[in-house]
Design a protein around this nucleic acid. Structure first.
Lengths: 100, 100
DNA sequence: GTTGAACATAGATAAGTAGCAATATAGCTT
DNA sequence: AAGCTATATTGCTACTTATCTATGTTCAAC
């Protein structure tokens, strides 16, 4: 059965926007010193800046996506990088296609 | 771009459940006197009863789905029948498949 | 070890959502 | 027209969400 909690994570224009940007991080975010945009993910402050919200607000959104399993967080040094969980997203799309 | 308002309509276990039941109304609801379960849809009180909520609560859920364009309402006499909008649902699934 | 940067957490406010009981409205049915 | 039934609307409470500022924590770099 489809999980409404996961759909709730998607029910936000800001979070949908982030997921779009994370499809091609290199196109949307500046280079990072200590983490690869593609391999490791994008750091929170970049996302906050591009979203036009304060950093804690961005953290909240990203944690919501992570709780839903749609992105993963990776801590490197003082940075936290977020990237899409493509397997989880594919699985979700498949479930929606089948069950909705 | 995916519309977060439509996804918000799906972000509820109760509304997801209703959409599932409406896939096969005959299997899930008793016969109706004045409207065909398949052609016209299912009346609100049946849905309220099966959901285990008061009638106004069911109305709210169904209106949310209707506002999102996922179901359509049809008034016949004193009844309002709700049924899935299969075209809209297919379109949504397609968009999710492509854009998520 | 002190400073500064990145991120998380806490606390506050405002807005939205789910639920109910009560009431209103609309339409049969007699 | 009177009464009954189905649905919608209203008014309320409780809970959740989005946002911010302020503070805490972690870690790098000097």
């Amino acid at each position: 059965m489809l999980d409404s909690a996961v759909l709730a994570a998607l029910a936000s224009q800001k979070r949908l926007q982030v997921l779009q940007w994370l499809k091609d991080p290199v196109a949307h975010f500046p280079p990072q010193r200590d983490g690869d945009l593609i391999e490791d993910g994008v750091c929170v402050v970049f996302i906050a800046r591009k979203l036009g919200v304060a950093q804690p607000t961005a953290t909240t959104h990203l944690q919501a996506l992570a709780r839903a399993g749609l992105v993963t967080a990776k801590r490197i040094g003082q940075w936290t990088f977020y990237k899409r969980d493509e397997a989880a997203l594919a699985d979700l799309k498949h479930k929606i296609e089948e069950e909705l």
